[in-house]
Design a protein around this nucleic acid. Structure first.
Length: 192
DNA sequence: AAAATGATCCTT
DNA sequence: AGGATCATTTTC
């Protein structure tokens, strides 16, 4: 039960994995938390996905590899976002980790986040990367073993999962309204 | 070579 | 509501 999630877990479509990741524990070194919010980016047909239209560049390269690897990129010149690659090789899709319930290494994470209150430590994709010290050095890293991974755990009952549009993708035309964001109902740790 | 663009966060 | 800040991508 307390093992890293396997390659097989990730080798499914992004929508399935996005739901299944809720309630699992993301770890990096001595810090970590329980995943409470995710978004699916399902591949070439998804206008909000970095691999929209099959766009394959140096940055998006990890998306085209095997599942279970990290895709970490810099956004707005200041913050990192963490995704896990899903699906099969040459199926460029992924799940964005958007929020955690802080759990392990609270003092360390608080320090990295400038002394902000616990509720604000991991409440957003850029914040959680800051709290867990997830940088581009971890891009393309295999997350099925080592000190940067997601632990298995009991699933979350269907009725605790809420669904909404994805956030911050107004440029994506019709895709901006697709209900591909998943989060745990009533959790204070979920982003705005 | 230069310009545009962000899957964000923080402060007014 | 606006500014920070810069790697990556696109355009000239």
């Amino acid at each position: 039960m307390n093992k890293p999630l396997s390659r097989e877990f990730y080798a499914r479509d992004a929508l399935t994995v996005a739901r299944a990741l809720l309630g699992k524990t993301l770890l990096h070194g001595e810090t970590g938390g329980v995943i409470v919010e995710t978004e699916a980016y399902i591949g070439p047909g998804d206008r909000a996905c970095h691999a929209w239209g099959g766009k394959r560049t140096k940055r998006t390269e990890p998306l085209f590899g095997e599942s279970g690897y990290a895709y970490v990129y810099l956004i707005y010149g200041m913050y990192c976002c963490l995704n896990v690659v899903t699906g099969g090789a040459d199926e460029p899709q992924c799940v964005l980790i958007r929020a955690l319930q802080p759990y392990l290494g609270l003092e360390t994470m608080t320090a990295r986040r400038g002394g902000r209150p616990e509720r604000e430590l991991c409440r957003g994709p850029g914040k959680l990367c800051q709290a867990l010290d997830i940088t581009r050095e971890l891009n393309a890293r295999d997350m099925t073993f080592g000190d940067f991974l997601i632990l298995d755990g009991p699933g979350v009952p269907e009725d605790r999962i809420a669904v909404s549009k994805r956030i911050g993708i107004d440029y994506a035309g019709e895709a901006k309204d697709y209900p591909w964001r998943f989060f745990l109902k009533g959790e204070p740790w979920v982003s705005r």
